[in-house]
Design a binder for these strands. Structure first.
Lengths: 333, 333
DNA sequence: CTGAAAGCGCTAACAC
DNA sequence: GTGTTAGCGCTTTCAG
């Protein structure tokens, strides 16, 4: 790998001049510029963005820190982020986090301006300590899919979403309903599932149909896990007549399990999800929609704004959720 | 942000000693180690991975370069990659490429050992020049979803896949079939679509039912684009009785367009895709399956192997494709 | 065992 | 206009 030194030597100039050519400084004569450029091309020299960032103390990348980035909802958010970032001068780099360790590491990296110019933190919470550090850092950060006091964020009202789900099921005449959600086994501090459950439970209670604790199941946020959880639910002596899953992906797992048992959806079992991902319309899934793609765009725009104008005060945004009734819910038999 | 200097000063030791503590070197007395560690904790000091990489000349990240990373097929591959990488000591960092410019930039970054320890390049081709550079670089690279002469890769036989599609449709009795594929507008050098088309065309020709050129449409690899392309196809005086879409995502766009016209699938129009993504089984889509998740795992394993043993010779792998007949194809009316 | 110093590749301030 | 040089934060000899 050729370095700036090599180029300088070969061109018979100082490294400063090469640097100037590299950065399009006007303080270089045309002839020198041409000569240096010639050597650069010839040597196939590429400046080290790393050394550049270290020297400058800043980089031109936006880092997105996201756990389980292949979940459909995460992908949809990332699509929004990417669509906005690609129109800017920044590069998008995605840091996957799969373990609690990585979460730590990503966060500590966060505050370093030479690593990333700005940060989007998806679905992860931050403790007050971390919030303080982030707020004090020179690297602006915006949280996506999570409300954080004191830092800009884009979030939804999970509690209200859970309530909507309950009210829909209640309105249909269901009294014995279940919940399939997430456990936070990795310790990421996910709360969406719990918040939705809380809203769900409250609305049920208020209607005089309190949620049976044995009908609440949690597991990893995958279709397979939801499938297993549901199979278990359906094996109970008094199975539920409806299931609210905390994501569409999980709702599909629920439906799968029901079909496996020969149950008709929604005839024998009503199923609803949360998110309204791409395929849900196709599959006719009743769900609580949250604006995933839009939330990504918004978060990116907020960050770009912050990057553009360090002093800018950016308000957190709460996005609306909306009930979308399709074909997987109906009155109980 | 505290630096190693700050720590050294506060602990009353040299930076070298701090560095040794950081890296668990045995050449530090226990008392000194304890004192330094104390200061580190107190200051909340985090070493700069950037400076570290620059100094060391190598990093502990695997870089994945992938265009349009939110396509379902890309996500599925990434899932395989991530599942393997997360079990290793490496970090996974994803570089999105959306423009031809970015492609250049990512590639040039590629060969720099201080940026990434290893590389997985998804769906992108490399010209002989680039292959040479990559082969010579100290950073091992494996190509995924593309065959590259002289470098390890994981790929499928697109040509055979296209043939399979044609044979299936032919076997059902279709003679007037269409193709909905990708154009490579961004100039990434994608060839999968063309290769599948070639296989499709040849098989059709061999069966005496040559593909009508007006029934070949290409556009961006999105559902929406495929929808539009198909609408156009169906408006023709002699519409096709079957459509082969180059991806499942696009096949869904085709189906959408057909339904919009009030056409029954497969009664009025047979539709098949390529990939067999997650939801295809759900939707009963007939398709040509390629092992997406597995291909990601394989590529990651190959790279890890290369990283582990620089001398290792890794063979390119061709993965099989397989026809999966479901409910969107049938005999023509 | 530990401190000092050189160097990783680059930018920017400072001379000439 | 252009060369020189001092860092950016870290690791790693090289002395002691």
């Amino acid at each position: 790998m050729a370095t700036i030194q090599d180029v300088a030597r070969a061109a018979g100039v100082g490294v400063g001049t090469v640097s100037r050519v590299l950065n399009g400084s006007p303080l270089v004569s045309d002839t020198t510029r041409a000569r240096v450029q010639g050597v650069i091309d010839e040597l196939g020299y590429r400046p080290s963005s790393l050394a550049r960032a270290l020297s400058l103390g800043r980089s031109a990348t936006v880092a997105v820190i996201v756990p389980h980035f292949t979940r459909p909802s995460a992908v949809e958010r990332l699509r929004g982020l990417a669509d906005v970032i690609k129109e800017s001068d920044y590069d998008l780099v995605l840091f996957d986090v799969e373990t609690s360790d990585q979460r730590e590491q990503r966060f500590s990296m966060a505050a370093q301006a030479d690593r990333a110019a700005g940060l989007v933190i998806v679905s992860l919470s931050a403790d007050p300590d971390e919030v303080g550090r982030l707020a004090g850092a020179s690297v602006p950060a915006v949280f996506l899919d999570r409300h954080v006091e004191g830092l800009p964020d884009v979030h939804i009202d999970d509690h209200a979403g859970g309530r909507m789900a309950a009210e829909h099921l209640l309105g249909l005449g269901h009294r014995r309903v279940a919940f399939v959600g997430d456990d936070d086994e990795a310790g990421f501090g996910f709360t969406s599932s719990d918040d939705r459950l809380a809203g769900y439970r409250e609305a049920l209670e208020a209607a005089g149909a309190p949620l049976d604790p044995t009908l609440v199941r949690t597991g990893p946020p995958s279709r397979e896990a939801a499938h297993r959880l549901t199979a278990d639910l359906l094996d109970r002596p008094e199975p539920p007549t409806a299931v609210f899953a905390v994501s569409d992906l999980q709702a599909f797992g629920v439906i799968e399990a029901a079909r496996e048992r020969g149950l008709d959806v929604p005839g024998d079992l009503s199923v609803m999800g949360f998110d309204d991902i791409d395929v849900s319309a196709y599959l006719g899934l009743t769900t609580v929609r949250q604006p995933l793609y839009h939330s990504g765009r918004l978060a990116a725009e907020m960050l770009l704004h912050l990057l553009d104008d360090a002093g800018a005060e950016v308000e957190g945004v709460a996005l609306p959720v909306e009930l979308v009734v399709r074909k997987t819910t109906g009155p109980p038999r």
